[in-house]
Design a protein around this nucleic acid. Structure first.
Lengths: 188, 188
DNA sequence: GTCTATAGGACGATAGAC
DNA sequence: GTCTATCGTCCTATAGAC
């Protein structure tokens, strides 16, 4: 049906990448326009509310991508310990390959915009809530009691985000690797 | 000896606070000058390398403060489980009281500057390394084997940072509380 | 050491022709 | 839908009087 959305999609794709790597304030609309090859006039046609709206839609695309990655990784084994470990190892591997090119999804936007934009804050909260739910669902399906599954979903999410942040900053996938190693202890 | 550093100290104190709450790019030198009450001319007198140098020294102050908080918290009990739990609970409590006013120490600067400034990246790495070491030392002193103490130091640091980031974004101290709750499982 | 004024550039956003 | 020109604002940084 919508085959002609390529311009808007191109802008969002470029914006998603730049926002994640550079952050919200360091990424200018001019840079997005330049790198996406789209005309500046069309930016405000597709995103009449400007930078905030563009960041919002870009963040939603990023969050959907990450959620999908988590969900797919968790499907690889019925055993939640193995599934979560393999998910984190996959991320560590991708980090080792891509280096800094992925930034830290959601976190960079969350820290910069949570206090200045309600729509963006809500989108970040929703993204993290979805990540957390994916872990909780996996734990529930393996027979864990509900209260404990929710608690551990929160903890898994915290560990993953923290390890990602530290791996990024230290330039070393060790935090991700070490966190993965503790999953059996935590879930046993 | 140095009783006349009050102007420079005032600038650093204000800058530390603003950088942590708003981030690097969203915080202007004009705002720092205005809120600190210091004259703009003196900013470039005390920090000839400009914003980067100011952010560097501010980050070091913040990192020292956080490290001190961690070290003090860990001293409260010889049992590392109790000590780490009480440390995280203290942070959760402070978060519940202060709300967003503390930002997420180090992380906000780390995400925004690690890719654009080597001195700032190094300072962030050093800060995280020190946090991690504090945990590792505590675990070593309680008789844990060295390799495992180092691994768990990395994991503790990741969990704490991740939980802090999530608590900040979600506006809820639950991630910190839940992470604290898992410490006995992880260290037993 | 302090203060003011200002340079010089980037930014987000808009207007209006096409 | 696209494109260009431009406005007003903010930024970092500097120059030079005091």
């Amino acid at each position: 049906m919508n085959e002609k959305e390529s311009t808007k999609d191109k802008i969002i794709k470029t914006a998603s990448r730049l926002f994640q790597i550079q952050g919200y304030h360091a990424t200018g609309l001019n840079q997005i326009i330049k790198e996406s090859g789209a005309p500046k006039g069309s930016l405000y046609y597709h995103f009449p509310d400007g930078k905030e709206q563009l960041a919002l839609e870009s963040l939603q695309v990023t969050a959907k991508f990450v959620l999908n990655q988590i969900a797919e990784g968790l499907q690889k084994s019925s055993d939640p310990v193995i599934a979560i470990q393999s998910l984190i190892h996959d991320m560590a591997e991708r980090f080792e390959k891509e280096g800094y090119e992925g930034g830290v999804p959601v976190a960079s936007i969350a820290l910069e915009t949570s206090l200045i934009s309600e729509p963006l804050r809500n989108a970040c909260q929703s993204a993290y809530g979805n990540f957390q739910d994916a872990f909780t669902q996996k734990l529930l399906s393996s027979g864990l009691e509900e209260k404990r599954a929710i608690e551990l979903g929160i903890v898994m999410n915290s560990m993953l985000e923290g390890a990602f942040l530290l791996s990024f900053t230290m330039g070393d996938s060790q935090p991700l690797r070490m966190v993965a190693k503790q999953i059996p202890v935590l879930l046993k």
